[in-house]
Simulated assay, not measured.
Amino acid sequence: MSVYVQNGEEEKSCEVFLQSRKVGIELTYLMVLTVLGFRERVFKKMARRISITWNAMIRRYTHQGHPDMALALFEEMSSSNGKNTPNYVTLVCVLSACSRAGAVQKGMDIFKSMRARFGLEPRPEHYACIVDLLDVPG
């Protein structure tokens, strides 16, 4: 996959990624980030997105200093009629985006809705994000 990306053939890289999923090869979140170098155009070209690809893009936007884009992508993912249900990693990524954006109220609203909206129990990583979110200069 990395060879395809390095040669500007992201579509072929996506095909390899999706084929690996079809035959049962599990790629980790870190593999997707490092091997694909996950670019926006790769994500947009994907016919079928799974949580790992959504999470990779949300994380990428956050770490590149575009938390508002990460939050917008999270909203798109969340409103996809159950096709792409956020998981605990998604929520860590989006709470980090809220922290980076200084969106304290948005982050708290998302955190409070984890159980009801997504059926997810907060984990230590989510609480750590909330601590970071509330640690604003004052």
Rank of each mutant, 00 (worst) to 15 (best):
E10F: 09
E10Y: 06
E11M: 12
E11H: 06
K12S: 08
K12I: 01
S13C: 07
C14M: 12
V16I: 15
F17I: 06
Q19N: 12
Q19D: 08
Q19C: 04
R21K: 02
K22H: 09
K22F: 04
V23T: 14
V23Q: 11
I25A: 08
I25R: 07
E26R: 15
E26A: 11
E26P: 00
L27E: 02
T28C: 03
T28R: 04
Y29P: 00
V32E: 06
V32I: 11
V32M: 11
L33R: 06
T34W: 04
T34E: 13
V35S: 07
V35W: 04
L36S: 02
L36H: 03
G37I: 01
R39Y: 06
R39P: 02
R39T: 09
E40K: 04
E40I: 01
R41F: 07
R41C: 06
V42H: 04
F43K: 01
F43D: 00
F43S: 01
K44N: 13
K44R: 15
K45D: 10
K45P: 00
M46A: 10
M46D: 06
A47H: 10
A47N: 06
A47L: 14
R48F: 09
I50F: 14
I50P: 00
S51F: 00
S51W: 01
T53I: 05
W54D: 04
W54G: 02
W54Y: 09
A56S: 15
A56W: 10
A56F: 12
A56K: 05
A56C: 15
M57T: 14
M57R: 10
I58F: 12
R60A: 14
R60M: 14
R60H: 14
Y61E: 09
Y61D: 07
H63M: 14
H66F: 15
D68R: 11
M69L: 15
A70H: 14
A70P: 12
L71K: 14
L71Q: 05
L73V: 09
L73M: 14
F74I: 03
F74S: 01
E75N: 13
M77R: 00
M77Y: 05
M77A: 00
M77T: 01
M77C: 02
S78G: 11
S78N: 02
S78M: 02
S80L: 05
N81M: 03
G82F: 08
K83D: 12
P86L: 02
N87R: 07
N87W: 05
Y88W: 13
V89Y: 15
T90N: 05
V92R: 09
C93W: 04
V94C: 05
L95R: 01
S96G: 05
S96C: 00
A97S: 13
C98E: 02
C98D: 04
S99W: 07
A103F: 09
A103H: 14
V104H: 11
V104N: 09
V104Q: 11
V104D: 06
Q105D: 13
Q105H: 08
G107Y: 05
M108C: 03
M108R: 14
M108W: 07
D109N: 09
I110Q: 00
I110Y: 11
F111K: 04
K112D: 13
K112G: 00
M114S: 03
